[in-house]
Computed example of a mutant assay.
Amino acid sequence: MEEPEFSLGIEEEYLLVDAESGELAQAPDALMQACKTELDDQVSPEFLRCQIEVGTPVCANIGDARTHLRHLRATIARQAAQFGLAPISVGCHPFGNWRDQHHTDKDRYHQLSRDMAGVARRMLICGMHVHVGLDDKAQRIDLMNQLSYFLPHLLALSASSPFWQGVDSGLASYRTTVFGDMPRTGLPPRLSSWDQFDRSVGLLIELGIVEDASKIWWDLRPSASFPTLETRICDACPRLDDTITLAALIQATVRMLWRLARGNTRWREYDTFLLGENRWRAVRYGISGGMIDFGAGRILPFPDLAEDWLALIAEDAEALGGQPATAHLREMATQPGSADRQRTVLSRAMAAGATRDQALCEVVRHLIDEFRHDLQAGDADLNENGNSCN
């Protein structure tokens, strides 16, 4: 069995905020043009005008992916600063109201708004998608069925959306519940073959329900545009290093599953009923509540799961050159996740005498700082443009 290249591509969605007030801001046409001039097709508008999407080119390894994504983030931050704006990478804005937002003037988005009605208007959410290259269609389906086991773990690590319209939802990933209002979302079904997937999508196309497979919005899917498996479950991550670690984990886990198949074995597949329970734990608690280990028959704390995961993929991370990135999983598993960090910022600000509105603005300042943290070294233009959410 010839080994695939396991190439990588990462897509991220950002929200644009006013650097002073922290409020959501629509992307000026001049900003989008400046970004397009510098980044070409690696940047595009998203459904809502306060959003912007970036995507790396096809990357041979995680080091290349980090270089490209760092450049994309730094460029967006630098260009946005010229307009008094700042990007944040987060599942939901801490206090933004979806009713005040407008969708981008493109035929695709007009159609989406018509089809999804009020559901589409609430899509004030941002995610992160990771593509791993697999040329063989049958292999994509086979590995998708097995990779689904790890989707809740990835969501738990990325969970960054505790607030919705200024209210603490009590969840770590409120974004997941908002996106779940859309059709054809959630955990992917277990499929027997590529032909079954193709027939099922083909039926929806024949009925005029969807134009193509890009309207299949599962947490994990065969990409409609590329020969890849596309992981879509993650909240957008405030920190670049966390995004890169998640991408490296996905890449190495796909290779691990391929390696098992090469040895005529496979990862055990569990019913989506059980996987859905872990998915809910990720939505509710992030990493703080642990996950069900179905083999052991008990709930394990995330640091223990992280060690088991790293042991499973050690050979694969080494083969792919991803060990430094995957090793960061230990820190992610033992430190507060983004949802808890945001709550801590809010509570500390209020304990210091801030009003709730002022404290929520401090949360936005925190998210601006986290976006910029891994970009500052060696980026003089970025360093010269400070942001203040007052």
Rank of each mutant, 00 (worst) to 15 (best):
A120V: 04
E277I: 13
Q196M: 11
L151E: 03
A27Q: 13
A252Y: 01
W217C: 15
I209N: 01
G337W: 02
G180C: 01
E38V: 04
Q146V: 06
R140L: 02
R66W: 01
C389F: 02
Q323D: 13
V167H: 05
G186T: 12
S148I: 08
T355A: 08
G289E: 05
I209L: 10
R279V: 03
H103Q: 04
S148P: 07
T326N: 05
D340Y: 05
E370T: 14
E53M: 09
N264I: 01
E20V: 15
P152E: 06
D369W: 00
G297Q: 03
R330V: 13
T177G: 01
L305C: 15
R140M: 07
D195E: 15
T344P: 00
D198A: 15
A380K: 10
I287V: 15
L260D: 15
S161K: 04
S200Y: 06
L143E: 09
A261I: 04
S89K: 05
V130I: 15
F83G: 09
S173N: 10
M144E: 07
A138W: 02
A120P: 12
R73M: 08
Q323C: 03
R175E: 10
F83C: 13
H102Q: 15
P152R: 11
R343L: 02
P227G: 01
I205N: 04
R298K: 13
A25T: 10
D136K: 06
E46N: 06
A252Q: 04
G9R: 06
R281Q: 09
L203E: 11
L147V: 08
M116E: 14
F95A: 08
P94L: 08
R190P: 14
L375R: 01
